[in-house]
Write a protein that binds this DNA or RNA. Structure first.
Lengths: 208, 208, 208, 208
DNA sequence: GATGAATGAGCCTTCATTCAT
DNA sequence: CATGAATGAAGGCTCATTCAT
């Protein structure tokens, strides 16, 4: 009884050990210089052991990505709980995403990495769980839109589509952030960001 | 006089030779597998010579990025010349960007690569010329917005900001493309893309 | 009694399970990429269990080699049953070996692998049974030679030696196969092979 | 003048340095445990340098194979110079090959390795030079056969084919060597080998 | 200016085997 | 008997960059 349980606990512990190391390296040195060998050294495990728990280098980052999405999800839920106003909720979502990019830059980078990568890395298993987490966030935002529609504030037939559009836009905006001082007239990125988010919300606001 | 001219011409020729090779490899094998050594071999020059003309591997790709932006610029000008309607012009911009992503995937990837990369690579020289090209595209789009404002179709105080917002959004949308069949309800990405672009245009349309 | 029997049966079953997996992998992916871990996974057993039943990775392949030899033996018996003519029998042996190389490339490779390997792997047990199977084939061929001698067709004091010589030669011929189009003038390997086999048979034919 | 020459000499020296190391390791530890890293260490060069001079691990062994073939060729020429008798010449060839297997076991193993390997390794360049060397040996033997034909001793339309057949057979015989004490009745391999070689020669001897 | 040989740390991954349970 | 987590050396190979010529 106890034996099997302990085994399972230990396995889970090892997984965490590896992910802890990977996360630390990722947050310290960035994606590019986080190699499997360094993760192993940091985790005080042998390289082989890493491959017992993760099929791939990519799977490690996939797990990390899922972690990042979970953090993001939690933060969105927390930030949107305060208000009942759909518009305000969406604004909060955008604010959270910007803040997430600042507080967890490398988690954002992982997400962005897999979004930018030309090839597809994961098959079934891991991928599904990532998508599920992403879908959760998006449906969360879709729900806000739906709420606005029901309250007569928004006009939108496909709340889900708008959620994806909204998220893709703010993701693009944050990416463009590094161009402030060069392409963006306005030096205050936050102001520009808010301006843009307002535009996005305008676009579903019921007119007339 | 003639000597100095010839020298300059030859230097420029060498640069082109290198960029030609880099571009070919980039378009054939993608960003990851385009190494300086392979560029040198393709260009029929020595590795050392590459480093005479370019400080960095990254600077080569920076020049390529500028090339990509020039192609994009040209295409935008061509596509928007046909119509006088500002709305239609913006729609054409978006269409061109999507098409550019399809036709010149690798050029798009270079642009995206440097947009996604966490660190800043270039100093002064090269960077400025990239920004200048990017700015040209953006001011081109800003001009469309301004035209719309002048025609009373759009309502917008800062056309430049809207241009950045518009471009950042469509860039994000195209990045999100690979999530079709998973997160995006709508299987037809083009339809979703057009839906989004219309929303973006809605957001500056003057509401009566 | 029944218990011991069952035990024995189960042990034998496990062995077969392992060999089945090893054979499948061998025939699918070839010798090089058939690792103990993969065999274990395929056999739905743990790696440790493999090592309960086989001392070595090499022992697994040794058993497989024996299997291959058994197939070969069966085929030789079948092919030579049709004719009573010793010469024809030998020709059939050669034809069967060539066909075996084509139909069971990987089995042939296993045999060749251990034949080519510089070191000796197995001690006593397994090795003996391999040799026994090999000897069976050779004595089968020796018998054909003996028959030819008794019929006055062949002239040979040591049929056993000739059998080894015959087999070694056709094995060498098949190995050399990949040199067709380069070293072998004749593009038609089968023709060259038959030419050679005839020469071999000529060499024991009684000259009168 | 002197500069370019020295460069070329130094390059050649490095190549030899690498091949020396590879050969030494090969002769000491065998094919399997001769890795590129170990070659580099032995040659007191960096791994990268190895790859400057050889495209592949396989190319190193290919060069070694060519070396082996050259040794073999030289030995055959030397051994067959003493006699004018075609039969005796062929017998000497066989004797040299057996001796070569004993004196340069690992060179023989390299040749055998590439003969046994299921895949083809080399493309054009290196492969051609190997084949050329192999072809030289075979045409050397074909010439002996031709001489025998001309002298009325042998009867053979296609001396080239017989040469390949002859060589393939003795190669197979030598491979089978390790089966002495088990499958081969006769404990004296040399005797068995000579018996076989005589049979091979019998097969082209003019009868009648 | 041009060359290109040299570097060597680092990449990801596999592997046969062991041993505590 | 059976398990399967753990090992860690080793595999082949790439790479951006330097520097003496």
């Amino acid at each position: 009884m106890g034996v099997r349980e302990r085994r399972t606990r230990e396995k889970e512990k090892r997984r965490e050990q590896i992910l802890d190391a990977a996360r630390k390296l990722l947050l310290k040195d960035g994606l590019a210089s986080t190699s499997v060998n360094r993760i192993a050294r940091k985790a005080e495990l042998s390289v082989g052991t890493i491959y017992v728990y993760f099929k791939n280098k990519e799977e490690i980052f996939a797990s990390l990505q899922r972690e990042g999405l979970e953090i993001l999800h939690t933060r969105i839920l927390a930030a949107t709980a305060d208000t009942a106003d759909p518009e305000e909720k969406l604004r909060q979502c955008a604010a959270v995403y910007l803040q997430f990019n600042e507080d967890y830059t490398d988690y954002f980078d992982v997400i962005n990495y897999f979004l930018s990568a030309s090839r597809v890395f994961f098959s079934s298993g891991v991928k599904k769980s990532i998508d599920r987490e992403g879908a959760r966030i998006l449906s969360c935002m879709a729900e806000m839109v739906g709420m606005g529609v029901r309250q007569g504030l928004f006009s939108e037939d496909r709340p889900g589509n708008f959620a994806v559009f909204f998220w893709a836009s703010i993701h693009g905006l944050i990416q463009v952030r590094k161009l402030r001082h060069t392409l963006i007239e306005n030096d205050d990125f936050t102001e520009f960001y808010m301006y843009s988010v307002n535009k996005l919300i305008d676009s579903i606001r019921r007119h007339g």
